[in-house]
Amino acid sequence: MAVHFHEEDLPAGVLAEGPIAVDTETMGLITARDRLCVVQLSDGNGDEHLVRFGPDSKFDAPNLKAVLADPNRLKLYHFARFDLAAIEHYLGVMATPCYCTKIASKLVRTYTDRHGLKNLIEELLGGTISKAQQSSDWGGPEITEPQREYAASDVRYLHRLKEELDRRLVREGRMAIAQACFEFLPTRARLDLAGWPEHDIFSHM
């Protein structure tokens, strides 16, 4: 298992075929203001790839964009809504089809309100990750080793989590509604980008 670090693009041919886990690190939570700094990916075979973008980046990244935009490759996220918006805003591609472990968790783990990635890894996989670097400066001149490990851990477990969450979705008869939610996520991300991040347009008021 290794963490590979790349500047401005993903090298061609480093990912195996099949679903890939994807996550992003940004300067904050307001997509248009807080630039994309890192995109991390894993094909589930033990290695993670981190692609870092500098403050003057043009976000060209043709290899990364090709992988993210591939309509035949499922992308696994935890809180896909945020990552999809950041990727589309900065890289100009909608990184779908997608699967969101947070949504799947909310549909089947109705006995708890703890749906963070750390919570899922602890309960479903018996593992643990550190979130100490979550709010660190991802736009600095160097990405530290603790930051690299944190970023890698955010995609390291998503394939295994999907397997367990899928079993529970089938068990509870909620796979179809989960899939409908995943298919709506690009629209939800675009609503965020267009200025409706909190208002529920489906509500009466």
Rank of each mutant, 00 (worst) to 15 (best):
W196Q: 14
Y99V: 11
P19N: 04
T187Q: 13
A32M: 10
D56G: 12
M175W: 10
L107F: 08
L185E: 03
E183R: 14
A80K: 07
A151I: 03
H159A: 09
L10V: 01
G126I: 03
A80T: 01
I103G: 01
H159G: 08
V14F: 00
T128H: 14
L64T: 02
C37G: 06
R168I: 04
I121Y: 07
M94C: 12
G92A: 12
P55V: 00
M27F: 10
L169P: 01
P97C: 05
A12D: 07
L124Q: 00
R114C: 08
H6M: 10
E8H: 10
E8R: 14
D83C: 10
E25G: 04
I30A: 11
P71D: 00
L41G: 01
L120F: 04
I121N: 13
L161S: 07
E163C: 10
H6L: 12
S153G: 11
M1W: 03
S57T: 12
E25D: 06
E142Q: 14
G173V: 03
G140D: 08
I103F: 08
N63T: 10
F53I: 03
N119C: 13
S153H: 13
L125D: 02
D23L: 04
V39D: 00
P197K: 05
F202L: 15
A189R: 13
G44T: 00
M205V: 15
M27C: 12
G54D: 11
E172Y: 15
K162N: 08
R81Q: 12
P141R: 00
L165C: 10
E122C: 09
R171G: 07
D56K: 15
E163W: 10
D60M: 13
W138Q: 02
P11A: 13
E25K: 05
R148S: 14
